[in-house]
Write a protein that binds this DNA or RNA. Structure first.
Length: 648
DNA sequence: AGCACGCCGACT
DNA sequence: GTCGGCGTGCTC
């Protein structure tokens, strides 16, 4: 009898995580089996990815320790997806698989689902909506992008698509960027569809997750799965359609471990399963917008549902520090007053927690820095403390400058607390809406109920406002603190700010009321013209022009490699050594890859560690991953304390 | 990730 | 003299 060799992707972070083992003669093995295998002086979990008989005499094979029958066997399609992710994001296959699989827990909990009521729901689709559905079929892999303004009824199109899949007894995976968006979809879908609806998000416990995997592998009737990023790994049986809502959202990017983008993984998953994928957004990611230009499966929805119109948007100057109502421009006070007295609502959007951005000494200009990070401490008036937003550091607000002894300290910049304080005449009508004030979903629900009922009419808060909430009666919306965000060194800064302004503006005038949005800014970038005119295509085209000129995505593929060191010198040295080596390999093997940097990271010190980084650019898709993969395979030590971020 | 080996500082 | 700090390197 010939000896069977099992190639096993073992759970450890080395790139060469696929090791070969002898099987036990008493046991049968198949590709996809989860095994326990010896690794050094310990055991680890692994997944069989290949079985063959080619014995290599230079390897001393160890024998498999055991088979994990309690675990789920991976299908060849799942393995293919994990292999693609591992190659593209340059991440250990074995580690990836066991990062994604649910942990096998003793405590069992049955997964929760909502039984769909299948109540009749009749609505007229407009011409644009119908056009999308006419040619949509579930037969093969296809990609569709729906670019629809906020409130244009994308969900109705999704609904029709899901209905069709279910009619063919096919399950649907509906991806959303964040949990707070799922509730309204869950409600809508479960009332009108006649299938079980499962929600998948971070608050699902280990036991429930494990059982959900068991369930999705075995259910025969169609079901709908509404989930966040990690739900792309659910091995859903008879999956017939994937929908990615708010496709542009940065929450789809994982920023620890394997830094995949769930939208891109979803596309690959649809491709491997040979099923359609549909993406939707009011502000498509530039990469996607560019990819879909002049394609048949790019659709726009340009009219708002029902009577509603998009709000009118204007840009006005930042408030003057002389005025009592600073940072709000005093010319807006009258509008706030009249909006409130007419019984309508106001939202004020601020990008910063706390009271002031930082504290500074009036005589020597000493500012209070975090001792562990290269950022200034934020002043919180409620707690009378200075706090770091990157680490745990906090201290009581100092009375005098520790540097020169001066007692005159002044505040720079503003946060939510300050904005609330700047409108004392409305104090009894204001709700503060930020992570600091609202600790859980319960708080959020309570406060939103107060706002909806009209008990409170002014909502002042951070990014938490911008997503998903369907609020009636918002006639005035003020956006503060845009300028500092535009000054960021991130090449996506204007794209992100643009997306956020559009998303936030979408909160106003959703139920027929004519609304007004004011953006306070002293800058005059061209993109305000595009925002005011609502010519979103023109913004995208203008931004594409800049990107092309600078050779940035989507015109080139990009990767960012960050090096961590205990000292700045160490981080810097590592990044230079890496650059030298990768440039040599790239040249020698004729890779079309250009190295930019090294450069100190935008925040060069975090939690007492220092960061330097380099960028890799290439006009060819997959080229950077191939180069990195090759270098990492031959010289893994160069990657010690580094983070690879593909398509940052 | 673990878990070894290996080479310098402060302890009985 | 050696106990243990964590840098470096390997795992079929």
């Amino acid at each position: 009898m010939t000896q069977k060799i099992l190639d096993v992707a073992v759970n450890f972070p080395g790139l060469k995580s696929v090791l070969s083992y002898k099987g036990k003669s008493t046991e049968d093995y198949e590709v996809g089996d989860i095994l326990e295998v010896p690794l050094g002086r310990r055991n680890a979990l692994g997944c069989v990815i290949n079985i063959h008989e080619n014995v290599n005499n230079s390897i001393k094979y160890k024998e498999v320790t055991g088979k994990e029958n309690e675990f789920f066997k991976l299908s060849s399609e799942e393995i293919a997806l994990y292999q693609w992710i591992s190659k593209y994001y340059v991440y250990s296959l074995g580690k990836l698989i066991f990062d994604c699989l649910p942990k096998h827990l003793k405590r069992q909990k049955e997964p929760y689902f909502i039984t769909g009521k299948g109540q009749d729901f009749t609505f007229e689709l407009n011409e644009e909506q119908q056009k999308i559905l006419v040619n949509f079929d579930l037969q093969n892999f296809s990609q569709t992008l729906i670019h629809g303004i906020t409130g244009s009824g994308k969900s109705l199109v999704f609904f029709k698509m899901i209905e069709r899949a279910i009619a063919q007894n096919l399950s649907v995976l509906f991806l959303v960027p964040e949990i707070n968006l799922t509730t309204q979809f869950l409600e809508f879908f479960s009332v009108h569809l006649e299938v079980n609806v499962y929600a998948y998000h971070s608050s699902i416990t280990g036991g429930e997750k494990f059982n959900l995997w068991r369930t999705v592998k075995n259910i025969d009737s169609a079901a709908l799965f509404v989930g966040v990023r990690s739900s792309i790994f659910l091995p859903i049986k008879n999956l017939g359609l994937i929908i990615v809502d708010e496709e542009h959202d940065s929450s789809f990017k994982q920023n620890d471990r394997c830094q995949f983008n769930a939208r891109d993984v979803a596309i690959k998953k649809a491709h491997l399963a040979n099923i359609p994928i549909v993406m939707g957004s009011a502000t498509p990611a530039l990469e996607n917008y560019y990819r879909f230009q002049n394609k048949d499966n790019y659709f726009t929805l340009t009219s708002r549902f029902g009577e509603s119109e998009l709000p009118e948007i204007s840009v006005i100057k930042n408030g003057s520090e002389e005025d009592d109502c600073w940072p709000i421009n005093k010319s807006l006070l009258q509008q706030i007053e009249s909006t409130v007295s007419e019984g309508y609502k106001v939202i004020i959007f601020v990008n910063k927690l706390g009271f002031s951005k930082y504290l500074q000494c009036k005589s020597c200009y000493e500012a209070f820095d975090c001792p562990n990070c290269s950022v200034k401490l934020t002043y919180f008036k409620g707690r009378e403390a200075l706090e770091c937003h990157l680490c745990e550091y906090k201290e009581k607000t100092p009375r005098m400058c520790p540097h020169c002894g001066c007692l005159d300290l002044f505040h720079q910049g503003f946060g939510v607390e300050k904005v609330v304080e700047s409108l004392p005449q409305f104090a009894d009508k204001i709700i503060r809406f930020d992570r600091d004030e609202l600790k859980n979903q319960k708080d959020v629900a309570r406060v939103l109920a107060e706002f909806k009922s009209g008990a409170k009419q002014i909502l002042i808060g951070t990014q938490m406002i911008s997503k998903g909430h369907n609020l009636a009666g918002v006639k005035l919306l003020i956006i503060l603190g845009v300028d500092s965000r535009l000054h960021s060194t991130d090449f996506r800064a204007s794209e992100r700010v643009f997306q956020e302004i559009v998303q936030v503006s979408g909160r106003a005038g959703r139920f027929g009321e004519k609304a007004q949005v004011y953006i306070q800014s002293d800058l005059r970038p061209k993109f305000y013209d595009f925002i005011i005119d609502k010519s979103f295509d023109d913004f995208q085209k203008d931004e594409l022009g800049h990107r092309e000129l600078l050779g940035l995505p989507p015109f080139q593929k990009m990767a960012e490699i960050v090096f961590e060191g205990k000292t700045e010198f160490q981080a810097k040295t590592k990044s230079y050594q890496f650059k030298d080596f990768i440039e040599k390999v790239s040249e020698r093997n004729h890779f079309e890859v250009q190295v930019r940097g090294p450069i100190s990271s935008p925040i060069k010190k975090r939690k007492n560690k220092f960061y330097w980084q380099i960028y890799l650019m290439s006009p060819k898709n997959g080229e950077i991953s191939n180069l990195l993969y090759q270098v990492k395979q031959t010289k893994e030590a160069l990657f010690q304390d580094s983070y690879i971020n593909i398509d940052p």
